[in-house]
Simulated assay, not measured.
Amino acid sequence: MQNWIPVLLCMLLPVSLLLAQETVTGSFEFDGQERDFRLRVPPSSFDGARPLVFNLHGFGSNAFQQEAYAQMNPVADTAGFYVCYPNGISNAWNVGWTFGSTADDVGFISALIDTLAGQYSIDPERIYACGMSNGGFMSYRLACELNDRIAAVASVTGSMVPAYVSECVPGRPVPVLEIHGTEDATVPYEGQPLLAISIEELLAFWNANNSCDGDAAISELPNTNSTDASTVSFIESEGCADRGDVWHYRINGGGHTWPGSPFAIGVTNQDINGSAEIWHFFSRYTVSGLSSSADHPEPVRLALFPNPTRGQAEVILPESGGELMVVNAAGQPVIRQLIEDRHVTLDLSAVPTGVYWVRARQGGAVSIGQLLRQ
């Protein structure tokens, strides 16, 4: 379900990405086995208890590769939350398939929450889970069985196992976000017998669980990157119970890939950034109610064009004032400038080609976008 990523990442990873910054590793024994994880710690400028996001790797992959592939760390560094990348047994998560892992991964994630909470200042009301492929399947299992601790979940290219659906009785509305490409050949959008229900069935299940009225608002997002062979439709279910939103980013023409990843393996959409969109969704919720963003501003998308750029790029900001920063894939700032107007011109002609994050801090608000320098 993702077994092509490990080999290609080893071939493509630049040295700057291999040298992860502010990421710690840890392990503990659970159920008679040594379980390990990687943890991205927020900058020290963020005080108080912080949110925690689990980001789960795909089948055949691992925590290190998922950290590099999803590129969630820059979003976490900006918004001030922890990201934990656990390792599954035999590079897999137990989601109900007849193959892969048979480990008690729900119990492991619960124990991992306890372990991290004993060492770091983590807000128990703001713990979330997302994942790629097999990791997305696992996120849904956590929504079914651990939603007393997990506030919301997101899946990228994942689904639910047909035989497991009848076993999922969440007992409450659980906010869910699904990001999926219509041309995904590994976890097909139309589903696959015995392995995955269709995305239409998946959304219908969570609409029913969350008491949505069956209608959906559909909007087409701007095609800001004309070279990625895909577009994005945003589908939001309507009339859902309190705290039970069901969101879907349909990547039209997209493959089995994480939008916004700098590793364009197959059709990878660059109109949105999967990691930023996931946090934008998560930051709305707590286990017991809708979240107040007063002490943890959620990033919103920046308008960047042209994207890709060969030198200059225009940035449209929510307001004037503040600071703009351009950060490379290793988390190192390459441009800093004060914001005097809502329209800013960035000159990237002196920076190397590659993927960059553009962050704007304006008062208590944070805006973020990804820019490709060709």
Rank of each mutant, 00 (worst) to 15 (best):
Y69M: 08
S320M: 07
G363H: 09
L112P: 05
Q33Y: 08
V156K: 10
G322Q: 09
E178Y: 01
S237P: 01
A313Q: 03
V351Q: 14
C240G: 08
G88H: 00
I199C: 08
V246K: 13
G321E: 10
L52F: 06
A264K: 13
I5S: 00
W93N: 11
V300I: 13
Q21D: 14
D213I: 04
E178L: 14
C240T: 03
W97I: 11
C84R: 05
Q119P: 00
D105Y: 07
S27R: 15
Q332K: 07
R342N: 11
D242H: 09
T115D: 11
V24D: 11
P14M: 08
Y82F: 15
G107F: 12
F281K: 08
D47F: 04
Q362F: 12
L372C: 01
R373C: 00
V358M: 07
C130R: 01
G369H: 06
L372V: 09
P162I: 14
H296T: 02
E190P: 01
G181R: 00
P175S: 06
G253F: 05
Q33I: 12
A276N: 10
L290W: 01
D347C: 03
G135T: 05
W97G: 06
E201F: 06
S283C: 15
R361T: 15
G118N: 05
G321P: 12
A20N: 12
A185N: 12
Y356L: 06
P193I: 10
V41P: 10
E190Q: 13
A360T: 11
Y356S: 04
E167T: 15
F137R: 03
L290D: 07
N328I: 02
G100Y: 00
